[in-house]
Design a protein around this nucleic acid. Structure first.
Lengths: 244, 244
DNA sequence: TAGATTGTTAATCGATTAACAATC
DNA sequence: TAGATTGTTAATCGATTAACAATC
């Protein structure tokens, strides 16, 4: 008896365990006049999690020099319905032209502004085992707005080691470094048992967003967002669907 | 204006982009008498995605030698409601005792059986750049039911290289190796531009589950499940919530 | 038995989709 | 203008929660 398997690519979407089911609209610059009136409206987190995929797809259209795109076409590329795209965008304002579609560059820039990707975010990375080394050397971040600015580990044997041109610093310095450099994004790559204490230190240092590679559910204050990177859980849920 | 930030740890759940919104119940062995009657009932994929977290939490209770647990206590540990846990489990049968709770070992084993984790799954890993190397050496899989059984790359410069005691094989051999060894799980760690063609080959080789590290939405047949590991998207959606 | 906690149903909540008037 | 496509509303769908009878 084969499993049902409707293939809906954007349900291929952000399935990070997420600490944030919804959020107030928090943009201060004027995106549009309508936007101001919505200023306190709470936007579903599912919508926020789809926006990076919209940006990514718009970028690939930019590379192909496509000047504009309809919600229908964009939906087809992403694998969602056109209605969903229009509705998602409508939370933030009006960015299209009837009969014409959306200007690819403008829409892309607009969503980037909404997501606050029109700047660079420094990050600290804690836990410099194999995984931490891999993340420190990972190239995927470079084209994004995120930069690893500090590496930390408790193990005095690795402290001082250079990874990707940066020294591994002692965990004891984490809070100080975060505060002095106003770093609000942290990556946890520690062993499972140290993940919570690391999160606690990051909170003390002023973290607002944590990318967590450790297989633990972190307890953090309400003003901190957490997303989990959890390949093992992903595999463990997929095996349910395998036949034979 | 601070963002709303209800911290609901299991919405800290599998944020893999997911190709599978729901699924037929596909267990063949008798878990319980009720189960047979439900045999064709479609179980929401959100439920399936929560099960690995339940297992993980039950394991940590086992380590503490807790013999039983109530839905209330389990919910507290995971950060969901007790109602959700009871409802999730009720899709599969009756595993608890009124007034008592659940036997930790039994429930853990049962969910593992449901997820088909009571066996080992061989996997192929395609794309042996830095990311592929890191995945091949990743220890996190070892305690799970998943084993990397073959490494593949197109680049003849790296083919033959030993990684974690396994030789990197040419991509040209992928389909053959998958078929001969009945491998139904694949990991994609290729550059973005090669991800779709790699997925196509995996499908040809008989893949049923793909863990995709490349930032692309893959097109696959209905019988294939895909989950995305996408740290960049996770970061890009979190920055929305950062104040200042 | 009395107390506790499950399993399940119905109510609520939230997200997606369809439809269409507005408008480029 | 006529055709196309947006932005938005209402209808639908699905998931979560609350409540409680069943039962250990």
């Amino acid at each position: 008896m084969p499993a049902i398997a409707r293939t809906n690519p954007i349900d291929q979407l952000p399935e990070t365990r997420d600490v944030r089911p919804s959020a107030k609209f928090g943009i201060d610059m004027d995106l549009d006049d309508e936007v101001d009136e919505l200023a306190q409206l709470s936007i579903p987190d599912v919508v926020i999690r789809r926006l990076p995929i919209y940006v990514r797809t718009l970028h690939s259209l930019l590379e192909k020099n496509e000047p504009s795109v309809s919600s229908e076409e964009l939906a087809r590329l992403i694998g969602v319905t056109a209605a969903q795209i229009r509705r998602d965008l409508s939370y933030f304002g009006k960015f299209g032209k009837q009969g014409k579609g959306y200007d690819v560059g403008y829409l892309s820039n607009t969503i980037e502004r909404i997501l606050k990707l029109d700047r660079t975010w420094d990050m600290v990375l804690c836990g410099m085992g194999k995984l931490g080394h891999a993340i420190a050397n990972y190239r995927g971040f470079t084209r994004s707005s995120f930069v690893i600015a500090g590496l930390f580990d408790t193990d005095s044997d690795v402290v001082g080691e250079m990874v990707n041109d940066m020294p591994i610093q002692p965990m004891a310095d984490l809070v100080k470094v975060m505060r002095e450099n106003h770093i609000s994004v942290g990556i946890i790559a520690t062993p499972r048992k140290n993940a919570q204490e690391t999160a606690d230190l990051m909170v003390e240092g002023g973290v607002q967003a944590i990318l967590n590679y450790a297989p633990v559910i972190l307890r953090v204050p309400d003003h901190v967002t957490v997303r989990e990177i959890d390949p093992v859980s992903a595999l463990q849920s997929m095996s349910y669907y395998i036949n034979e």
